[in-house]
C-alpha cells in the first residue's frame, strides 16, 4: 500500500513536470506521458521518496529553502572576496563532522547544502561522519566544527526528515 502511494505520487510529479515544460493542452498527449511516467515509477519503485503530508513539514521545508538561499548568497560574496584579493586568503584543510540525521535522503540534502554554503565542500560520507573540505579552518576539533557547520541545517532537517 505504501509503495502504491509512492508510485502514484511520483507519476503525478513527472507528468506535472512534462506539463510545465511543454505547456501542452492536448489530452491525448498528456495521457501518453502519464503512462510512460507510470512505467518509469514502477521500474524505480524501490528508490522513491515518500510524500510529506503534515503541514508542519511543508512549512519547515519552505523556511529551509529561504534559509539556504540566503546562505548561498553569503557564500558567493565570500567566494568573490577571496577570488579578487591579490594574495588569495585561504587556510584549507579536511575536517570531520558528525550528523544526527538517520535517513539517507536527509543526509544527502545535508551534504548538498554544506557544499553550497560559505567555505565548505563535502568530500566523503561514511555513515554518520561527513568529511568536509573547509577553506578557512579555524578549529580542527570535531565538536566545534559540527557546531559551526551543520548545526544550523540540522535544526530544520531534523523536523523535515525526523
Amino acid at each position: 500500500m505504501d509503495r502504491i502511494i509512492k508510485v502514484i505520487f511520483s507519476t503525478g510529479i513527472l507528468t506535472l513536470f512534462y506539463f510545465i515544460w511543454t505547456g501542452t493542452t492536448d489530452l491525448y498527449n498528456i495521457l501518453i506521458i502519464a503512462f510512460i511516467a507510470l512505467v518509469i515509477s514502477i521500474i524505480y519503485n524501490r528508490s522513491l521518496f515518500k510524500p510529506m503530508l503534515s503541514p508542519k513539514k511543508w512549512i519547515y521545508s519552505i523556511w529551509y529553502v529561504i534559509f539556504l538561499f540566503i546562505e548561498i548568497i553569503k557564500a558567493n560574496f565570500d567566494v568573490a572576496r577571496r577570488v579578487v584579493s591579490p594574495k588569495i586568503p585561504i587556510n584549507p584543510g579536511i575536517v570531520t563532522v558528525k550528523t544526527k540525521l538517520k535517513s539517507a535522503m536527509g543526509r544527502m540534502i545535508l551534504a548538498n547544502s554544506i557544499t553550497l554554503t560559505p567555505g565548505t565542500l563535502t568530500v566523503d560520507i561514511d555513515e554518520d561522519i561527513l568529511y568536509i573540505h573547509w577553506i578557512d579552518v579555524t578549529n580542527i576539533d570535531e565538536k566545534t566544527a559540527t557546531e559551526k557547520i551543520v548545526a544550523n541545517f540540522e535544526k530544520y532537517l531534523e523536523v523535515i526528515f525526523g
Partner: peptide, 8 residues
C-alpha cells in the same frame, strides 16, 4: 599550507 587532512 593545508591545516589538516582527516580523510587521509
Amino acid at each position: 599550507g593545508s591545516v589538516a587532512d582527516k580523510l587521509k
